[in-house]
Design a protein around this nucleic acid. Structure first.
Length: 224
DNA sequence: TACCAGGAGAAAA
DNA sequence: TTTTCTCATGGT
């Protein structure tokens, strides 16, 4: 995938959708909780879980830790995998509190903070990078299932690249601009959740103009 | 009814 | 080291 490919896809998406104003959460801790809750889960279900936590004042680190695990599980049930996510949320929150809360991590270098996050059981590369980008405004590219699916469908990724290989492509092709990385990821989520599904249902979408699968589905007459 | 969703870790091969 | 399995609710 070339630098031009990376930039062209962004231009097409931005032209079609405009700015997305993301991440869809209000406080820094809510972003962290959402990053765990959205693991392999549709965001609409995460919103229900976040609303449940907000309703009992648990969208704050100490309050979340004070909640009985069984009660926490009940709150986050709509997001699925609730038994696993209770542990993951508590692991992340405990580490956060150990290091002085949300502000405690702000002075850490990006590399050090990524290592710290990846050392927390239940925090993988995507979750760690989401926190780095959306909470700590570090210029890291978040690679998610949508990113892989969209670029594989555009035949710009093979599909077997590692997380860091894919991230490196974007980080080298784009200026280290947090706002740009934020916008690009948001646009890919918008496209991925509306159109570029595992079984394509779209007839046409902003990237189907370039997308072999989309063109084929549309009968080879992709127009917008 | 069956399939899928913005992962991650453990177990098996 | 790589692949497969497991975790689970809610929408289409």
């Amino acid at each position: 995938m070339s630098v031009a490919d990376v930039r062209t896809v962004f231009d097409v998406l931005y032209g079609a959708y405009g700015p997305q104003h993301w991440w869809p959460a209000t406080t820094d801790f809510e972003v962290m909780a959402g990053a765990v809750l959205t693991q392999n889960t549709a965001w609409r279900n995460v919103e229900r879980a976040l609303a449940n936590l907000r309703a009992v004042g648990a969208l704050e680190p100490a309050a979340l830790m004070a909640l009985e695990p069984a009660h926490l599980a009940e709150r986050i049930r709509p997001a699925g995998y609730y038994n696993i996510k209770v542990t993951r949320l508590r692991n992340l929150t405990a580490a956060l509190l150990d290091d002085g809360g949300v502000e405690g991590w702000r002075s850490w270098s990006t590399a050090a903070l990524r290592q710290r996050l990846l050392g927390i059981k239940g925090v993988g590369e995507e979750t760690a990078d989401s926190i780095l980008l959306y909470v700590y405004h570090r210029p890291v590219f978040v690679v998610d299932a949508y990113t892989r699916r969209i670029f594989a469908r555009l035949e710009l990724l093979r599909g077997d690249e590692t997380y860091r290989q894919v991230a490196a492509v974007f980080e080298h092709a784009l200026p280290a601009d947090t706002a740009l990385f934020n916008e690009y990821h948001a646009l890919l989520v918008r496209l991925g959740s509306e159109c570029c599904r595992p079984r394509p249902r779209c007839s046409l979408c902003p990237v189907c103009v370039m997308c072999p699968t989309g063109r084929a589905q549309a009968g080879g007459s992709a127009e917008r």
